[in-house]
Structure formats: structure tokens, C-alpha cells
Design a protein around this nucleic acid. Structure first.
Lengths: 167, 167
DNA sequence: TTGAGTGCAAACTTTTTGCAATGTT
DNA sequence: AACATTGCAAAAAGTTTGCACTCAA
């Protein structure tokens, strides 16, 4: 069983070290432990999930430190922060992870990833047009997946109704 | 001075009426008052801004009703809900308003709109590929605008550093 | 040694919920 | 008259802050 994540973790640690040194911040064990926990995960997670799983491993951390460290890791681009519509920040590791966007099922809430190079083109073009130096983006498609598991309510009825009423 | 919004408000009221009837919900004055307030606005707003501006106009509403009504209006596609990275939902009217996406300055927080038809193509193609029936999307570009007003901090340094360190 | 960083708890912000009163159907 | 909807206030949920203590530099 290959463990390619270890390489990423290693690179991530070096990046974090360099970042902390550059910013004259301290290399605390908590910061590296949290980084390690994040890079051992493969999915999206929220602050509490991360906090709980560290607690379960008997690691002594506080929520405040988790919040603080996530800010640091987001700032040095080792972690990405998402707002998937809910009022709850979701995170995922971003080093060594192919750039991707998300498609979310409104019914069963599964999150899948996709990658389309045209998004980058749009980003560049829109940035040029509006004189923005775009550094990152968030693209999320919302819909219903076609799995039997999923309730698969008929969506979009409202929009059709609207057109009928407005005309 | 033209007032095209009145037409939209009118159509929106008819859509809301039809929606409420179809769902057997009540046509309360609060619901229409909130719709009216929203369609008199041109910008993005959060729940409290909407609540306060109705209070200032001496309209008697509660926050709970504003929250409840926004859910209704989002469900019948008269209003769009956004999560622009912060933990605070932003809304905007959506009927009679051209489909658009957003580009946000990380430094001065200005929000501008743009429209690129290729986004729809990507949406359709990704939906087909992953067997999703995509009903809407959210695309946000984050960057720094080139206005003098704006602090215009140099972004992206971290990513460059990372590459240097990791290699 | 010193002050950045930590844990803990309290405070804050946004949203949701419970319940009695109201008013649409 | 019935009960969906409202206002209000309390609770919940997520995040931030204050402060005394700790430990990396």
C-alpha cells in the first residue's frame, strides 16, 4: 500500500517551517501536529471534526489553537478554506493536491470534485477585463445526483413556474 | 428617470403569489413587504441590513420573519443567497436580473459582477459527466483590484515561496 | 528572559427554536 | 374557527476574544 501522502506531509512541513521563519512566528508542536493531522486526512473537514479527532488521539489542543493554526495554514497556502453554502467553514489540505472545484448534491449533500481547465481561462480573462489580480477562486455546482440512495427530489420546478406566471 | 424595477417588483409579486398558492402558504403582508424592500434595493445585503432598513421605515417586522421569508423567497427563486467567504449570508434579488458571478477584492472587499457564458458550458458538461442535474452554481474570483484607494498588498508571495521551499 | 502562543472560559455574532398571540383562509 | 405565521426572547452553533500560564527563541 503506497503512502504518497507522507511525501506531501514532508514538503508541507518544510513549507510551514520556512513560512514561520520568514514571518518570525514560533515553530510550536501544536502547529505541526495540526498540520500532520490535516495531511493524514483525505476529505473535507470542519474545525470541530479536526478538533475532535485530535482529542480522540489524546492530543492536547484547544479549539482556539485549531482556529489560529488553520488561519496560519490557510495563509501559507497549505490548507484551503471553503464555505459550501452553510455557515460552517470547511477545510482541506491543498499542497500536492490537484487544483479542483466542487459539485454538491442538494439532497444527500455528497461533495464531489472535478477539474476543468477552462475555469482558469475564464479567471484570467475576467481578471484582465476588470483589472483584478485574481489569486484564487471558488466554483461550486449545486444539483441533484442520480443515485438511488438519494431522494432525488425534482428540482427546478419553481423556475419553470416563475416563467409561466411572469409572462 | 426610468424605473424598470417596478416592473420586476410587479412580476416578482405575481410569482410569489402563485408560489404561495401552489404551496398552500399564506399571503401575509410581511412577506410582500419584505419582497418589496428587497426589490427596491440594487445591491447585496445581509439579514440585519434588511431588518434595520425596514425598521428605519417604521415597518414592524421581526428578525425571525425576515429569516423565514428569505427562505421562502430563495426557494421560489426570487432571491439568491450567497456565502462570500465570511460567516454571514448575503442576499440579492434575482428576478429580472441577468445571471452573473462575482469577483471580490480581498483588500477592500468591493464586490463586482461579471458574466461569462462559458461557465454555463462547463456546468452542463460537468453535470453530464458526473451524472448530476445541476440547478445552480456559485463562482467567485478572489483577488486584489488595481484602484489607488485599495491597499493592494502584494498577494501570491506565499505560493511562490512554497514552490521554492518544496523543490 | 521575554513575549508569542497556548488552554480555557466567557463573549460575541448569526441563525434557529419555542411559545403565546395574531390574523389568513 | 383552525392553524400557519408572527413577534419576542431564549437557545444553539460557530467563531473570536481576554487573560493567566507556558515554552520557543
Amino acid at each position: 500500500m503506497p503512502q504518497p501522502n507522507l511525501q506531501n506531509l514532508d514538503a508541507a512541513k518544510r513549507i510551514l517551517t520556512a513560512y514561520l521563519e520568514r514571518k518570525s512566528l514560533r515553530k510550536t508542536p501544536e502547529r505541526f501536529a495540526i498540520l500532520e493531522e490535516i495531511y493524514s486526512r483525505s476529505d473535507h473537514f470542519d474545525v470541530d471534526e479536526l478538533y475532535i479527532s485530535m482529542k480522540n488521539k489524546k492530543y492536547r489542543v484547544s479549539r482556539a489553537t485549531v482556529y489560529n493554526t488553520l488561519d496560519v495554514l490557510v495563509d501559507c497556502d497549505l490548507v484551503t478554506k471553503h464555505q459550501f453554502g452553510k455557515n460552517l467553514a470547511q477545510y482541506e489540505k491543498s499542497y500536492g493536491y490537484k487544483q479542483h472545484d466542487h459539485i454538491i448534491c442538494l439532497d444527500c449533500h455528497q461533495v464531489r470534485e472535478f477539474c476543468d481547465p477552462r475555469v482558469q481561462n475564464i479567471q484570467t480573462m475576467v481578471g484582465d477585463m476588470l483589472q483584478f489580480n485574481v489569486v484564487h477562486h471558488s466554483l461550486i455546482f449545486y444539483g441533484s445526483c442520480q443515485r438511488e440512495k438519494c431522494e432525488n427530489r425534482v428540482q427546478n420546478v419553481n423556475q419553470l413556474e416563475n416563467r409561466a406566471v411572469a409572462e
